[in-house]
């Protein structure tokens, strides 16, 4: 009975949204089109910028002096891409043993092998192999969790799977409405409660709804939290416990969303989220800017968490499977 009442509330809210979108429809769709177009242009430009980032700067700084100088330039360039001091110097040390001479093409080849070698070990696309398949989405504030969920929901829907979203971010103002907006755009239901409520209760509802509605995929949004906040990490553990209690074996995937612009702190983020709830996949977002996302390399080396997706824009289709070769090619 309790559950039924909640669902009714949800139906009502979704209608409220429809109404509102109707009023605004003309204006927002216009703006939307422009934005999507602009986003597409910038994506093209963005890829060109990221492309050749490391080798480009090595080439321009290298004076042709010696092999040692070449390797030094390379190390500098890796650090500039957020690969970090430790990983950069280890990569360069490893290449020192393999590289003969100071030929630029050989260096490029050697670097490509090195980086795609590291990344291939974590290239494992997400396989949705059961129903319901429960995905929990985590991360610090502002990395793009909700947007990633929207894109992911769209991907699942377009492969014929029915998706259910759970508005587990009950803390931030209007986070629920933001997710509902995506639900509307993608065309999938959103389980929600009021702002300030218990995320555990939302998840409880969502798991029951998933079973009764026979949803194929359940995607759970969580509030952004800094990995150093002990009580918020405890809350996350609790959310996970509720999920597994309601549906043994779930969550089947816990995706950590990382911002490609983040520096060395991303390693700590990955480490602490992993310790708290065992991260099974990473989504690297905002790769359409000038940030290279090199931080993913030390994370791949140290934590070996599979990288599932990359986000390359604000559009609904801008979520791609992670491809180690392509990524390495774009990075170097």
């Amino acid at each position: 009975m309790f559950f039924y009442a909640k669902r009714e509330k949800f139906e009502f809210d979704s209608k409220w949204w429809t109404l509102k979108e109707g009023v605004n429809a003309g204006a927002s769709s216009m703006g939307m089109f422009d934005r999507v177009k602009a986003g597409f242009d910038s994506l093209k430009a963005g890829l060109a910028r990221t492309h050749n980032a490391i080798m480009g700067s090595v080439e321009s700084a290298f004076t042709g002096e010696s092999r040692e100088e070449l390797l030094e330039r390379l190390e500098e360039s890796l650090i500039r891409s957020d690969v970090g001091v430790k990983a950069s110097s280890e990569i360069v040390d490893h290449m020192r043993t393999k590289l003969v001479g100071k030929d630029m093409e050989k260096l490029r080849e050697c670097l490509r092998d090195e980086i795609s070698g590291i990344l291939q070990a974590v290239e494992r696309p997400l396989v949705v192999d059961r129903s319901p398949f429960v995905i929990m989405v985590l991360g610090v504030n502002g990395v793009g969790k909700t947007t990633t969920i929207g894109k992911l929901a769209h991907r699942c829907q377009s492969t014929g799977k029915s998706v259910l979203l759970a508005a587990g971010d009950t803390f931030r103002a209007a986070a629920i409405e933001q997710l509902e907006g995506w639900g509307k755009r993608v065309g999938c239901p959103v389980i929600r409660q009021a702002q300030g409520g218990d995320p555990g209760a939302v998840v409880f509802d969502a798991m029951n709804a998933a079973v009764s509605r026979r949803a194929d995929v359940v995607i759970i949004d969580t509030a952004g939290r800094l990995h150093t906040k002990v009580n918020l990490m405890e809350e996350l553990k609790k959310v996970k416990r509720v999920i597994s209690r309601e549906l043994p074996g779930a969550p089947h995937e816990s995706i950590l969303v990382l911002d490609a612009g983040t520096g060395q702190n991303a390693i700590n983020q990955a480490r602490l989220f992993n310790e708290a709830v065992e991260v099974t996949g990473i989504a690297l977002t905002k790769l359409d800017g000038t940030a290279k996302g090199g931080i993913i390399i030390p994370i791949a080396r140290e934590l070996k968490i599979p990288i599932r997706f990359i986000g390359v824009g604000e559009g609904i289709d801008d979520l791609r499977d992670f491809d180690a070769k392509d990524f390495a090619e774009a990075l170097i």
Binding site: R80, G261, A291
Partner: peptide
């Protein structure tokens, strides 16, 4: 700006 920003902070702030 996010205080966790990496090397790219230079480019964004400059931009």
């Amino acid at each position: 700006a996010d205080s966790m920003t990496g090397q790219d902070a230079v480019n964004t702030a400059k931009g």
